[in-house]
Amino acid sequence: MNNTIVVPVDGSRIAQNALKFAITMAKAYGDEIRVINIQPSIAILGEGIIKEAEALLENEGVIYSSKIRIGTPAIEIISEANGDSVRCVVMGSRGMNADSSRKLGSVSQATLTMATCPIMFIPS
Results as ranks from 00 to 15, higher is better:
1 M>H: 11
1 M>V: 11
2 N>D: 11
2 N>Y: 13
3 N>L: 13
3 N>G: 10
4 T>V: 15
4 T>H: 05
6 V>G: 03
7 V>E: 08
7 V>Q: 08
9 V>T: 09
10 D>C: 11
12 S>K: 04
12 S>Y: 05
12 S>A: 10
13 R>N: 13
13 R>W: 00
13 R>P: 09
15 A>I: 06
16 Q>G: 15
17 N>V: 00
17 N>E: 13
18 A>G: 08
19 L>Q: 09
22 A>W: 05
22 A>H: 04
23 I>L: 00
25 M>G: 03
26 A>L: 07
26 A>D: 04
30 G>V: 06
30 G>I: 08
30 G>A: 09
31 D>H: 11
32 E>W: 00
32 E>V: 10
33 I>R: 01
34 R>T: 14
35 V>K: 01
36 I>D: 09
37 N>V: 09
39 Q>D: 05
40 P>K: 13
41 S>D: 05
41 S>K: 12
41 S>T: 03
42 I>G: 03
42 I>N: 14
42 I>Y: 12
44 I>T: 13
44 I>L: 07
44 I>C: 00
45 L>Y: 07
46 G>Y: 06
46 G>F: 06
47 E>K: 14
47 E>F: 00
47 E>W: 01
47 E>D: 14
48 G>K: 12
49 I>D: 06
50 I>A: 00
51 K>H: 08
54 E>C: 03
55 A>I: 11
55 A>Y: 04
55 A>C: 08
56 L>T: 13
56 L>S: 01
57 L>Q: 01
57 L>K: 01
57 L>I: 02
58 E>I: 14
61 G>A: 06
62 V>Q: 02
63 I>S: 06
63 I>R: 06
64 Y>Q: 09
66 S>D: 11
66 S>Y: 03
68 I>V: 08
69 R>M: 14
69 R>L: 15
70 I>S: 00
71 G>F: 06
73 P>A: 10
73 P>M: 07
75 I>G: 05
75 I>D: 15
75 I>S: 11
76 E>A: 12
77 I>G: 08
78 I>T: 10
79 S>F: 07
79 S>L: 11
79 S>Q: 12
80 E>H: 12
80 E>N: 04
80 E>Q: 15
82 N>I: 10
82 N>K: 11
83 G>Y: 02
84 D>W: 02
84 D>V: 05
85 S>K: 15
85 S>L: 14
87 R>Q: 13
87 R>P: 01
87 R>K: 14
89 V>P: 06
91 M>H: 04
92 G>F: 14
93 S>K: 01
94 R>H: 15
95 G>A: 05
95 G>P: 08
96 M>C: 07
96 M>D: 11
97 N>R: 08
97 N>F: 07
98 A>C: 11
99 D>L: 14
99 D>E: 07
101 S>R: 15
101 S>K: 14
102 R>Q: 12
103 K>H: 10
105 G>E: 14
106 S>T: 12
108 S>L: 01
110 A>N: 07
112 L>R: 11
112 L>Q: 12
113 T>A: 13
115 A>H: 00
116 T>V: 03
117 C>D: 01
119 I>Q: 03
119 I>F: 04
119 I>W: 04
120 M>F: 12
121 F>K: 06
122 I>C: 11
122 I>D: 10
123 P>A: 07
123 P>K: 08
123 P>V: 06
